[in-house]
């Protein structure tokens, strides 16, 4: 009897935290509750692209349209970059980087996954593409491309998205993604921001100060 108690005691003592936690949960002996059905008829929009664009603008994103990568490149060079430069008082030369081969010539190409992410510390503008967007909240799905930190560390972010890839809501988004296999990915909706000081909105907390989206026809 005494040795049994001792065994029990030492078992308790040497039981891993993992086992302790699992045991405690099991001991709570909750009756299984079934999973609910999926949300029926979530909101859809007559013109999801319009809705996407309205919501994006409301959170401080610039929404632009372009026919082709070349058109994006032209617009960036002739209009958008000078605008950003003036508005934010950026000094030349800008460090522009991109993960898109189409931006060759305008931006430095990131092709090496082993690049030290700290080396991107001084990037002024990053040009990347998003897989799809969501109309209800203007979020864009940006999977890891080359360097994980790129869309966060740059001062200004430009994302290209196919306007046929604007979904209505988040349920459609996860349906499209399935289980996925991205090591990392993020929904990005607008420039980095904070309202921690008296609820006044300030753009450019730690991540990009601005976000521009090119809706590709």
């Amino acid at each position: 009897m005494r040795s049994a108690l001792f065994l029990l005691f030492t078992f308790e003592l040497f039981m891993s935290s993992r086992d302790k936690i699992i045991q405690a949960i099991k001991a709570a002996a909750l009756e299984e509750v079934p999973l609910p059905a999926a949300v029926g008829n979530p909101i859809t929009y007559e013109d999801p692209v319009q809705k996407f664009s309205d919501v994006a603008k409301a959170v401080g994103t610039s929404v632009l349209e372009a026919e082709s990568h070349q058109a994006v490149k032209d617009h960036l060079m002739q209009t958008y970059i000078p605008e950003v430069q003036t508005r934010w008082g950026l000094e030349q030369p800008l460090r522009m980087v991109s993960t898109l081969p189409e931006m060759e010539g305008l931006a430095e190409q990131i092709t090496d996954v082993a690049l030290d992410p700290h080396s991107l510390e001084n990037v002024d503008m990053a040009i990347m593409s998003a897989q799809f967007g969501v109309a209800e909240n203007s979020a864009l799905w940006v999977p890891e491309t080359m360097i994980r930190v790129l869309p966060f560390i740059c001062q200004h972010l430009v994302l290209l998205v196919d306007s046929r890839q604007i979904l209505n809501n988040m349920h459609e988004a996860y349906e499209k993604m399935g289980l996925g296999d991205d090591s990392f990915g993020a929904f990005i909706a607008g420039p980095s921001k904070t309202a921690d000081i008296e609820q006044s909105l300030v753009l450019g907390a730690h991540g990009p100060r601005s976000l521009a989206i090119y809706l590709m026809a």
Binding site: G185, F187, A189, P191
Partner: peptide
């Protein structure tokens, strides 16, 4: 409608 960043770490 959503936070600026919803990051999925896998």
């Amino acid at each position: 409608p959503i936070t600026t960043y919803s990051s999925h770490f896998r």
